[in-house]
Design a protein around this nucleic acid. Structure first.
Length: 499
RNA sequence: GGGUUGCUAGCUCAGUCGGUAGAGCAUCUGACUUUUAAUCAGGUGGUCACAGGUUCGAUUCCUGUGCAACCCA
């Protein structure tokens, strides 16, 4: 249907004019040359020559080849100043008719802001002291057919920034900085884990049985096999199979897909770090997480104290640790842990806290709902919350002293859950029972409940060593570090409804 | 799912108590060989998101739809 419709081409006077200029260039020869090789980036020139004086630069006479997009164009008759932008930043170039020649200069005067050019010239400083390249030759490499946003007002329309990220990246330095920071976050985590002998692996994105998290999957279909497949909601069960196989320290940084609503904190596809660590428990995991996050913050921001949103964060000092029930009591001082451990009293507390209780909920689920309502959003400073009820932790190992809870934690910062980790359930028979309970919940109408994964049980029956595993939401971590209020600000191409 | 707000030139935004719209930047023409959001003079450019309704007349009022942002569940 839609592929038979002719795409609507929006044209205006400026685009038409630029297309005419391109048509003229086609007539003259190669319109999209690829024979210009640069030898310098704007930032490197600034770094090397920025603090040198004008006469000194004239003496050096450093010749460079730079390339980039024209961002500013100041024409003064027989001479012009243009500012070009490359991946490293901006640099000005001084283009004179008597330097580049009449023919080139007359052509150059018809070029537009947004065009991509290659410049050969000498590094110098203007009378006002701005580091520039005096062009001896200049070449149009790519004609831009669309005008850029206002050079001063920029592009501020959120929708256009998300839909046309390429334009956002051209004109908004903040946006470029956010995505560079994102890349550094992932690199820091890789460096950290690689240094500790974790092995990076890739496990299936398409699952026959969706598992590893309580979430609704996207469904697709394999034509040749004529069978349904599910985009993964988590890689967990495959990564643990690898630990069974003897890859005792593995991690994967990749996309998960959850068929749920969109918000400033949720995108249908999002990036998780998941890692599994044989012969370790959740306490080891918390220590490692604290170290890893401290290292990441330091690597990306160059410091451990930073501002984000309304708060100042200190990732340099040790993170607070408390149990789910301790956190509830902290923010709801009129209740006691004993009251929270009594089903009837807990129900009353839940109702008083605006939680709508469902019949199928047990005490553990009620406690978690109370926690999420009264405590979660108040956990601003980095905090580990521990002792999650087994009822809401189908894959976590029970605590030896209190089997009602599991050896599990979640990590919070900025009022948002950033990580979830636990000592893994490696008792195949217990795991089989919990899968059965999930299947019953699914049959009772809970479409987020897990399926029974017989192969995973088989793997556990071969023996999973005592293992700890964790997932960290990369997008939310980047949001925190880049002070981005919406997940869309840290996704290069966030999901949008079609225009 | 509910509510609020927004959608006007390529960009950022005014505006019309209902009589088909303006500014700055961009763009076009001209001047200008060290500018800095260059400057100076003169122009072009709009299905006012889309579809209905009310009206002599709707970009403006009303209803619906789409997309987006924010808040709530």
């Amino acid at each position: 249907m839609s592929n038979q419709e002719t795409p609507v081409v929006d044209v205006n006077e400026q685009i038409t004019l630029r297309k005419e200029k391109l048509a003229e260039k086609r007539k003259q020869g190669v319109a999209f040359p690829n024979d210009f090789r640069r030898d310098s980036l704007a930032a490197n020139i600034a770094e090397e020559f920025g603090d040198k004086e004008k006469p000194e630069l004239e003496e050096i006479g450093k010749k460079v080849k730079v390339a980039g997009r024209i961002m500013l164009f100041r024409n003064m008759g027989k001479a012009s100043f243009i500012t070009i932008q490359d991946m490293s930043g901006r640099i000005q170039s001084y283009v004179r008719k008597d330097q580049v020649g009449d023919e080139t200069y007359d052509d150059f005067k018809t070029w537009d802001i947004g065009d991509i050019v290659g410049i050969e010239g000498t590094v110098f400083k203007t009378n006002k002291g701005e580091l520039s390249v005096k062009a001896s030759d200049i070449k149009l490499l790519t004609k831009s057919l669309r005008p850029l946003p206002d050079k001063w007002g920029g592009l501020s329309d959120q929708e256009t920034r998300y839909r046309q990220r390429y334009v956002d990246l051209i004109v908004n330095e903040d946006s470029r900085a956010t995505f560079i920071a994102r890349s550094k976050v992932v690199k820091a985590i890789r460096d950290f884990l690689e240094a500790r002998e974790f092995l990076e692996v890739e496990t299936p994105m398409m699952h026959v049985i969706p598992g590893g998290a309580t979430a609704k999957p996207f469904e697709t279909h394999h034509n040749a096999l004529d069978m349904p497949l599910f985009l993964r909601v988590a890689p967990e069960l495959y990564l643990k199979r690898l630990v069974v196989g003897g890859l005792e320290k593995v991690y994967e940084i990749n996309r998960n897909f959850r068929n749920e609503g969109l918000s400033t904190r949720h995108n249908p596809e999002f990036t998780m770090l998941e890692f599994y660590w044989g012969y370790a428990d959740y306490n080891d995991l918390m220590d490692l997480t604290e170290e890893m996050l401290r290292f990441t913050v330091e690597s990306v921001l160059g410091k451990t104290v930073f501002e984000s949103g309304d708060a100042t964060y200190d990732f340099g000092k040790s993170f607070e640790r408390m149990t789910v029930l301790e956190a509830i009591v902290k923010y709801l001082p009129e209740v006691s842990i004993d009251q929270l451990n009594d089903l009837e009293t807990a129900k009353k507390i839940a109702k008083a806290s605006n939680v709508k209780i469902e019949d199928s909920w047990g005490l553990g689920k009620i406690q978690i709902e109370i926690f999420e309502e009264v405590a979660e959003h108040k956990l601003v400073q980095p905090t580990f919350i521990t002792a999650y009820p087994a009822e809401v932790s189908p894959l976590a190992r029970r605590n030896d002293d209190n089997p009602f809870v599991t050896d599990r934690f979640e990590f919070f910062a900025g009022g948002r859950e950033l990580a979830n980790g636990f000592s893994e359930l490696n008792d195949a028979e217990d795991q089989a029972e919990r899968f059965k309970a999930q299947v019953q919940a699914k049959d009772a109408g809970d479409d987020e409940a897990m399926h029974y994964d017989a192969d995973y049980i088989r793997a556990l029956e071969y023996g999973l060593p005592p293992t700890a595993g964790e997932g960290i939401g990369i997008d939310r971590l980047v949001m925190l570090l880049t002070d981005s209020p919406s997940i869309r600000d840290v996704l290069l191409f966030p999901h949008m409804r079609p225009e």
